[in-house]
Computed example of a mutant assay.
Amino acid sequence: MMSETMKAVRLHAFGGPEVLVYEDAPKPEPKPGEILIRVHAIGINPPDWYLRDGYRMLPPEWQPQVSFPVIVGTDVSGVVEAVADDVRTLAPGDEVYAMIRFPAGLAGDSRAYAEYVTAPATDVGRKPAGIDHVQAAAAPMSLLTAWQFLIDLGHDEPNPLQPHRHRPVTLDGRTVLVNGAAGGVGHLALQLAKWRGARVIAVASTRHEALLQDLGADEVIDYTKVKAEEVVRGVDLVVDAVGGPSSARFLKTLTRGGALFPIFPLGLDAAAEAAERGVTVSATQVRSNGAQLTEIAGLLDNGTLRVVIDSVFPLADARLAHERAAKGHVQGKIVLTAV
């Protein structure tokens, strides 16, 4: 008997957006501890194009071994279609959202760009009732990243990025600078810092100023006109949502005892200067956490947090969505729809 099929976006080789193929693929079945989700929308994130590109930005020893064909993506919102016999926390018909098997699924085991996807029940949160599937699908990876960096790490796994455990810092009454504040992680980090009582300086380009003010930024610095690191001093925390080697330029903006949180810390060599300045540099690897997504749902429901949508594409047009991402200056998130 032939297995059921579904539409999915798969890779048969690494490359640019053109290697994303919309085609038939086997419909998955939930294993013990898993649920099957009828996907309504998929959020696009940087690891999607890292996988598509063969993780060339990672050191060779970090590059996972990928077996083709592979379905891209980690973030979904949808409706539970079926559950394994041992799952008691969710039932068919429940609306859910999730970042699936991350970082365990880096080699393509998350499989979100599809009409159906299985997920460990522990990765899945109950979708906020007050937002639609597009907004919910846009949230998981970006929101969990901001949450685990700023609010609650939520796990005891070893930190692959540094020898010590990442620890969020006090935000109430502090000044926080968010670089890349209009992007996926940045615009949510801004809102979480405001929620926790911080004064927030947002760094972005001209076109994002009105949005960032609307999201609560106390000050917006247009990096096309002035370098934030040349004019800002005495902040307590820098969240660099752009990251990379250039994060070190923000060390001089920090007060002694402050902290720099680079969301993407690879290539950053700042330990000596940080020690000299008396500041902490810390990062962490975001991890799937359904309990945290369920907890955060209330903040999305009541409007405390808002997920900004840059653009929406049908699943069949995943290539166009990746081309949009490659152009940069994305405001919030890009989403695919599967229903």
Score class of each variant (00 low, 15 high):
Asp310Cys: 02
Arg277Pro: 02
Pro160Lys: 13
Ala114His: 04
Arg56Lys: 15
Leu260Pro: 01
Val235Tyr: 07
Asp214Lys: 15
Gly15Ser: 10
Arg319His: 04
Ala25Thr: 00
Leu315Trp: 06
Asp132Ile: 10
Val87Ala: 02
Arg52Ile: 05
Gly278Tyr: 06
His187Leu: 00
Gly303Leu: 12
Val286His: 07
Val200Arg: 08
Leu36Ala: 03
Pro128Ile: 04
Gln135Leu: 10
Asp218Phe: 06
Val312Arg: 11
Pro47Met: 04
Ala259Met: 12
Tyr113His: 15
Ala318Phe: 02
Leu11Met: 15
Pro28Lys: 00
Gly93Asn: 10
Ala146Ile: 09
Val117Met: 06
Ile221Val: 14
Pro168Glu: 07
Phe14Gln: 12
Pro140Val: 11
Gly154Glu: 09
Ala338Lys: 10
Arg207Tyr: 11
Ala8Ser: 13
Leu161His: 10
Gly186Gln: 02
Gly290Phe: 03
Gly278Met: 06
Gly234His: 04
Pro17Trp: 08
Thr280Glu: 14
Ala98His: 05
Trp62Val: 09
Arg196Ile: 01
Pro28Met: 00
Lys7Leu: 10
Leu336Gly: 12
Ser282Gln: 14
Thr145Met: 09
Val330His: 04
Pro92Cys: 12
Val124Ile: 11
Gln148Glu: 14
Pro60Arg: 13
His12Leu: 09
Trp49Asn: 13
Arg52Gln: 14
Leu150Phe: 12
Ser3Ile: 00
Glu34Cys: 02
Gly108Pro: 06
Lys27Gly: 00
His155Ile: 08
Ala338Trp: 10
Ile263Lys: 07
His12Tyr: 14
Gly78Phe: 03
Val330Trp: 05
Ala259Arg: 09
Leu171His: 07
Met6Ile: 03
Pro60Thr: 13
Val124His: 08
Ile334Met: 02
Leu161Ser: 05
Thr253Cys: 14
Val79Phe: 02
Thr337Phe: 12
Ala138Pro: 04
Pro32Ala: 03
Gly303Ser: 12
Val200Lys: 02
Val124Asn: 09
Phe102Tyr: 15
Ala193Val: 02
Leu215Tyr: 07
Gln148Arg: 09
Leu237Pro: 08
Ala275Gly: 13
Tyr116Ala: 06
Thr145Cys: 11
Val239Phe: 14
His322Glu: 11
Gly73Gln: 02
Pro17Leu: 07
Pro17Val: 11
Tyr55Pro: 08
Asn159Arg: 09
Gln292Ser: 07
His187Ala: 00
Glu29Arg: 08
Thr89Tyr: 00
Asn179Leu: 02
Ala283Lys: 11
Asp75Ile: 01
Val281Met: 09
His164Gln: 11
Lys327Arg: 15
Thr5Val: 14
Arg277Trp: 02
Gly43Ser: 04
Ala181Leu: 02
Ile151Leu: 10
Glu18Val: 05
Ser77Gln: 05
Val76Ile: 15
Ala91Pro: 01
Trp147Val: 03
Met6Trp: 01
Pro46Cys: 11
Leu58Asn: 07
Asp317Met: 12
Lys27Asp: 00
Gly130Ser: 14
Glu61Gly: 02
Glu273Cys: 08
Ile100Asn: 03
Gln285Ser: 14
Glu276Lys: 12
Gln65Leu: 12
Gly73Ala: 11
Val220Arg: 04
Ser205Val: 05
Ala8Pro: 06
Gln148His: 11
Ala13Met: 04
Glu29Leu: 00
Glu95Phe: 05
Pro160Gly: 12
Leu51Pro: 05
Ser247Ala: 15
Ser110Ala: 15
Ile309Phe: 12
